[in-house]
Amino acid sequence: MIRYRLLGLLTDAFVFALGFFSLISPFILPQAMSLSSQTAAFPIMVSLIIMLCLLIMVFEAQSSLLDSKMIAFLAVLTAINAGLRFLENAIPGPGGFSPTFFLIILAGYFFGSRIGFLIGAMTLFVSGLITGGIGPWLPGQMITAGWVGQSAVLVSLLVKQLEWKDKPGEIILLAVFGALWGLFYGLIMNLWFWPFLGVGIGQTFTQTATALENFQRYLVYYLTTSLIWDTTRTIGNVLMITFMAKPVLKIFGRFQQRFSFFTQEDRVQP
């Protein structure tokens, strides 16, 4: 059991390192900035590596889906969340406001990292299928939304450590976490196409610039093009979590008990 958990943790660490390294390669690998060596293949290669990371993560996480209860639960939660994203497409809110993240965060917080990751990734995939949003951007969106749900387990560890369960501090921590991801999501998603737009931008991407200089340039790009957009997502996440977290977590608690039915087979082989 410990071996499996260790393997799971190592897998998570490897996937995060590989995906993150691919995304930040323009900052640290001078060759990734070279116009002649990369041309337009860069975003496709990054997408491919992100897709492989996603494949590994989903393969690892699907071991949580070995019974009908988890399958039904995850499917319904994904359908609700995809419906919220459909609502976002049909009635666009201000900027990057999206009502989907709060459910991903709360599911990850309550049910653990694997379920959180799967809800995040599956929501983006199912809503992509429904809204016709399948494209090279989808693996990046899926893995980032998966990371949102997966990392929510950190809040639950912190809440446990601080003994803030069912206290206002719990909601405040979740809201802060949602706010941070509101910004990080845009920051990570921009990295996927920024080098593509930036290939020809001589002053923004130079081979002679240090990683720090290039990072500063990326920050300038981010502040001028995405910050307002992502701020609305951040505010949206904070509001949604502030208003919805308490009743939704209560429902999760109630249904967690109701989903705990066993078959005879389960009892024989606990």
């Binding site: 889906l65 399958i71 995850l74 499917a75 994904t78 359908a79 799967l118 429904i130």
Partner: peptide, 16 residues
């Protein structure tokens, strides 16, 4: 190889 995930997606699409 992703059979459980495919089942989840199919159910989600049916429930949607």
């Amino acid at each position: 190889a992703f059979h459980p995930i495919a089942v989840v997606i199919t159910i989600a699409l049916t429930f949607f």
